[in-house]
C-alpha cells in the first residue's frame, strides 16, 4: 500500500534530486499559475526548492531554519524550521520517521497509475489542510497540496535521481548582499 511506499521512500531515499512543474488552482480564479524548477532534499530537514520559471524564488531548509528568497523583490524571510515542519509541505518531503508525529497518514488507493497517501497535519494551527503523495515506480512522483483557502497545488516530479552525490553547502543559504532579511 502507499503507507509501505512512504516508509521505504523514507528509508531508502536518504536524499533526492528532481525537476518539478507546479500548477496552482483555486475554485474561483481562472486557470492556475504554472511554475517550474528543481528540488533537492536530504533527510532530515534539509531541502532546496528552486523556482526558475516564471520568476526566481528559492526555499531552503538548512536543518535549523527555513529561508525563502525572491530575487526580483530582493527580499528574504527566515524562520525556525521546527515550527515549519508541520506547516510546510517542502519540509514534509525531507521529514524522517517522525512524520507520523506531525501527520495522520491514510492510504487513499490507486489513481492515475499511482498509489496515493493522504497526510493530514496533527494539531490545529497548521497552515494547510492536507497533502496527498502519489507513489509510482520512480518513487514519489506527484504531490497535491490542499490549503485552508481552497487553493490546490499540483507538483509533478520528473528526472528523479535518488541518493545523488552530495554537494557541499547545497543546503546552506547566505542572503545576497543588499537583500532585505526579515524574521528571526
Amino acid at each position: 500500500s502507499s503507507l509501505d511506499k512512504l516508509k521505504n521512500f523514507i528509508q531508502q531515499t536518504h536524499s533526492a534530486k528532481a525537476h518539478f512543474t507546479q500548477s496552482v488552482f483555486s475554485k474561483s480564479a481562472r486557470p492556475g499559475q504554472e511554475s517550474s524548477g528543481t528540488m533537492q532534499f536530504m533527510r532530515p530537514g534539509k531541502f532546496r526548492w528552486t523556482y526558475e520559471k516564471p520568476y526566481e524564488q528559492l526555499i531552503v531548509g538548512d536543518g535549523v531554519k527555513l529561508w525563502v528568497y525572491d530575487a526580483e523583490l530582493n527580499q528574504v524571510t527566515v524562520r525556525k524550521l521546527d515550527q515549519a515542519i508541520g506547516s510546510s509541505p517542502a519540509a514534509l518531503l525531507a521529514g524522517n520517521n517522525e512524520i507520523e508525529k506531525f501527520f495522520t497518514l491514510k492510504d487513499v488507493g490507486l489513481k492515475e497509475g499511482l498509489e496515493w497517501l493522504e497526510a493530514t497535519p496533527k494539531g490545529n494551527e497548521s497552515t494547510f489542510e492536507s497533502v496527498r503523495m502519489g507513489f509510482g515506480p520512480a518513487g514519489l512522483q506527484v504531490m497535491e497540496l490542499h490549503d485552508n483557502f481552497g487553493q490546490i497545488t499540483l507538483i509533478r516530479f520528473s528526472a528523479i535521481e535518488r541518493n545523488p552525490k552530495a554537494v557541499a553547502d547545497l543546503f546552506k543559504f547566505v542572503p545576497p548582499k543588499g537583500a532585505d532579511v526579515i524574521g528571526e
Binding site: 507546479q22 496552482v24 492556475g32 499559475q33 526548492w49 523556482y51 524564488q57 526555499i59 525563502v68 506547516s87 510546510s88 509541505p89 517542502a90 490545529n124 494551527e125 497548521s126 497552515t127 494547510f128 497540496l145 490549503d147 485552508n148 483557502f149 481552497g150 487553493q151 497545488t153 507538483i155
Partner: peptide, 23 residues
Amino acid sequence: SPLGQGVAQISQNSAGVTLITAD
C-alpha cells in the same frame, strides 16, 4: 507561499473588511 498555499486573505465588501490567517 511560493508553493501556492494561502498565508492570509483580506476581503472587503460593503459590510467591511475581513482578514483570515492561514490557521
